[in-house]
Amino acid sequence: MGGGFHMTLFLVRRMAGFAATLFVAALVIFLLLDLLPGDPARFILGINATPEAVAALRTQMGLDAPAHERFLAWVGGMLVGDFGLSTTQRLPVAELIAERMAVTLPLSLIAMVVSVVVGLPIGILAAMRRGKATDTALMVLAQTGVAIPNFWFGMLLTLVFAVTLRWLPTGGFIPWDEDAGAAMRGMTLPGLALALPQASILARVMRTALVDVTEQDFIRTARAKGMTKSEAIWRHGVRNALLPVLTILGLQFAFLIAGTIIVENVFYLPGLGRLIFTAISERDLVLVRGATIVLVVVTTATMLVVDLAYAFVDPRLKGRDA
């Protein structure tokens, strides 16, 4: 059995699963937004629209074609980067989304990095000091952090750092190409607000995973070889404990994107969330459809990356059916 062959096999299977999930997800979105409203053109224009206006929009949206052709045209278009035209703004949906993703994606990444940099060391420290005062204090903090809604924490941060201390802006966003420093400052508070609950969850998961691993036989073996308990945990425990943490990390990035949509509201950031809310209130179904599928792609892609990372870290997954 060649490891290379199995690895390729694994990749092919994972990619196929990824594509299949996306296809079904696109189908669900299409069913909900294109077929369920009956006539999307009438839904978009409202009940007071003239039949002529509805007919014109129908032709423009290509609604005269049968449903399966419309679905395939939509999916086919997306594959070459064409997400259709926004019905209200008359602009390509892909362009609108790309512009907003320049805010949403960096914000999620910043929050992710902060939560990993803060959360994992706290979790490791707590596990190493299990049962001692440090552990208890850190876990009380984490327990509180998990319970704080990120958008409310954003409001509190604004109150302290923007209004009282005036260190950072209360909100708004200056595009990256105008002033990268100002853009970064605008992202600091929302990034922290998003990172706090995630860091707390990571700290808790990391601690539990490491405590579990510490009870495994191979830690005892490492100690029998001549390591102290903490050496054994560092050299053998942490790497093994990172496996379950990886899964949570993947789920978290998906949730961070969703959380960003909420936190953008607090800081008046022109991200994907604001685009979607405007689209909903203006009944711009083409735009909603495009934005949701992008969110679904990001979520599913994250899961795929986690799966692949898992296979890379854990030799047991290579060459085995999963």
């Binding site: 369920l36 949701t292 979520t299 599913t300």
Partner: peptide
Amino acid sequence: FAFPAVIVAILIAAL
């Protein structure tokens, strides 16, 4: 799992 709660809420709210 590909549909976080916010996305589901967006879809329903849109309809």
